[in-house]
């Protein structure tokens, strides 16, 4: 890859400075008028990646590492022709349409009967005061219908997510941070801080691999850009031999750097998903998908 090193470094500095700004904002949350900083972050991210991968359009990032790894892309395309996640979509559809004990359905809990809406998640939950991912919204729905929660890592939940993602395919991610609730911006900022914070025995941050070294090789693995990291879930990974969630992937990257993995749907992971999804706004949903 040939590019201007000086400009590359300047763009990295731009992203970092916008981070510093946000830390100051967290510190002075009550004193400062809220700056439009998520938009600035998003612009800095896009500018940086555009510089590193001048040929990629925003929608291309939906394919993760296969947008930049031409060789791996071939075997991936072959797998996608007979997708191993198909049973998950079918199972999910069945579960989604099965009535609860009270006769109501998942469709009664969501806008547009729950179809074509996955791209709007995570959402800020004003009444709950926290980030509501689609998985959490499914369990919130169940609670309202007097049904027990589904375990986040188990197949029922993953299959319903697979069906809802499938019913939203092609729709651009459209995550919003409402301006009328400062806690929404604070959650976004926490997700962002997590993304940048070095951790684990190896002392890496998520940005070390997916921003600073995106496109480079770690052993034989090319590192993907963070744009579009949330759009292809749940994903069937050959390594797992099954379909799993975005938060499971987060946990795996943490384990890789010998940091403590967090549970699925922990506040930290939901805030992280909020930040990453906002960065990836506009990238179309491709879930469920497959990855190595």
């Amino acid at each position: 890859m040939i590019f201007n090193l000086k400009e590359h470094i300047q763009l990295l500095i731009d992203i970092k400075q916008s981070l510093k700004l946000s830390i100051i904002i967290i510190g002075l949350l009550n004193a400062l008028p809220l700056a439009a900083s998520p938009d600035q972050d998003q612009a800095a991210f896009r500018k940086y990646y555009q510089h590193v991968f001048p040929k990629l359009k925003l929608a291309d990032y939906a394919n993760g590492v296969y947008a930049i790894d031409k060789i791996a892309r071939q075997s991936w395309s072959a797998i996608e022709e007979f997708p191993p996640y198909e049973p998950a979509i079918e199972q999910g559809k069945k579960l989604f349409n099965t009535p609860f004990a009270n006769g109501r359905h998942y469709a009664d809990c969501f806008a547009n009967k729950g179809l074509g809406i996955a791209n709007g998640y995570p959402k800020w939950g004003k009444s709950q005061g926290e980030v509501i991912t689609l998985a959490k919204a499914i369990n919130d729905c169940r609670a309202r219908q007097q049904e027990p929660a589904l375990a986040y890592e188990k197949s029922d939940m993953i299959n319903i997510l697979a069906y809802m993602a499938y019913a939203s395919r092609g729709k651009p991610i459209n995550v919003t941070i409402p301006k009328d609730d400062q806690r929404a911006l604070a959650a976004y900022e926490q997700g962002k801080a997590f993304y940048y914070q070095r951790k684990g025995q190896l002392n890496f941050s998520c940005t070390t691999c997916h921003v600073q070294n995106a496109g480079k090789k770690l052993r034989s693995e090319i590192l993907s850009a963070s744009l579009g990291h949330t759009n292809n879930w749940p994903t069937y990974r050959l390594k797992w031999g099954e379909i799993g969630s975005l938060h499971r992937r987060f946990a795996e990257c943490l384990t890789q750097i010998k940091a403590k993995p967090l549970p699925e749907q922990s506040v930290e992971f939901r805030n992280l998903e909020y930040f990453l999804s906002y960065m990836g706004n506009g990238v179309p949903v491709t879930g469920p998908s497959t990855r190595k």
Partner: peptide, 18 residues
């Protein structure tokens, strides 16, 4: 060390290029 993850080193196989 897993230095090969990021560095090319003599006869080491599939080195990274970080």
């Amino acid at each position: 060390g897993n230095c090969l993850a990021c560095h090319e080193i003599e006869d080491g196989e599939s080195p990274g290029n970080i």
